[in-house]
Design a protein around this nucleic acid. Structure first.
Lengths: 197, 197
DNA sequence: TTTTAATTTAATCTC
DNA sequence: GAGATTAAATTAAT
């Protein structure tokens, strides 16, 4: 973890709390110790077609040894965690006025947030327009900001450094995608043109 | 994807053209970031260790001669940085990397890093469910398998021994991370509880 | 439906 | 090998 400040480290750890599974790995040891077993040479029951990627979350029910399910064991932390409560969006709060149901929008947002926690996912951050603008401007000049720049951005934009880092990762992926697509377009156009000649 | 509309791609291209052509939009930055800061020039590091990484999978598809043009992964840096647009042979790239008169150490580090990432990165391996299962079972018993076990696993799982080694490294890192985080959790809960008493 | 924040993990780099 | 970081692939919220 590159974050050097305590707050950054704390935020980072709390982000990954749901990944905590240090104890879950022990309880899954129920296999025998024969080499054949270890190597999985006795063919498994439900002939899973080899060649398929490993996607345990798709059929989580049938996947017993998966430590990913362990985040369900510690939802209490999610409730108590103050780190994500602070991040309320003013734009969304104004919608409270239009709410005529049992729960206010903020209440429902809160539920949603807690549900996110249960599901093991950080509530989606809604960046403000100004935050995006600054991030974009920095990205134009440097798409790989180091830890110090990220920290500086975090301070100035009132965001966690983690969010900054993720934002740049996603932004780089987006740029790459758009390059791929424009490249594809060019090739396609060249091909079309040469066929029309 | 439907988002591959011409307008979208065009917008994307023009955005990138602006980027290539210079810092035309510097003035829109309404935040007090110094250029040095944004470019990451503050963080000084040591020199670049010369030496080309071993990338057998690059040669595998298209080798014979020095043709790199048929790579599916488009190097983003080639678009963004005018330096890498014209020259596509390694000798010239070396010269660019050695050009310390014009570029800072960190810049050259960044270039080199991006080059190797975008051009030479090994395609991500998608392990099958069965492969993962076997690896996990072995890991439970021995998280530091020696070369002989790795070779055996490679044979039986039809993988390169390299992949096995990397997998165990990443798996150990994951375990360590989860231990750190659960420890953090315990400390935090103890702290919370003692504060509530 | 589209965009993008968030997540997981294989691969890379530095030490 | 450890540790940090990244890209790739994906999930899911908006």
């Amino acid at each position: 973890m590159a974050g050097t400040s305590l707050s950054a480290a704390t935020a980072s750890v709390s982000q990954n709390l749901r990944k905590v599974s240090g104890f879950a790995e022990k309880k899954t040891i129920q296999c025998s110790f024969s080499i054949e077993s270890i190597l999985g040479l006795e063919q498994k029951k439900d002939g899973i077609p080899a060649g398929k990627p490993h996607r345990p979350w798709v059929d989580a029910c049938t996947n017993l040894g998966d430590d990913r399910s362990s985040h369900l064991q510690i939802p209490v932390v999610c409730y108590e965690n103050p780190l994500f409560r602070a991040n309320s969006n003013p734009a969304q709060e104004e919608k409270v006025l239009r709410c005529e149901n049992y729960f206010s929008v903020t209440e429902r947002l809160s539920f949603k947030r807690e549900l996110s926690w249960y599901r093991g996912r950080r509530p989606r951050t809604a960046f403000t327009r100004n935050q995006i603008e600054v991030l974009e401007n920095v990205f134009k000049i440097n798409s790989y900001p180091g830890i110090d720049i990220r920290e500086e951005l975090a301070r100035k934009l009132d965001l966690d450094e983690d969010r900054i880092q993720i934002w740049f990762q996603n932004r780089r992926a987006k740029l790459k995608r758009s390059h791929r697509e424009s490249q594809f377009l060019m090739v396609k156009n060249n091909l079309t043109n040469s066929l029309l000649e």
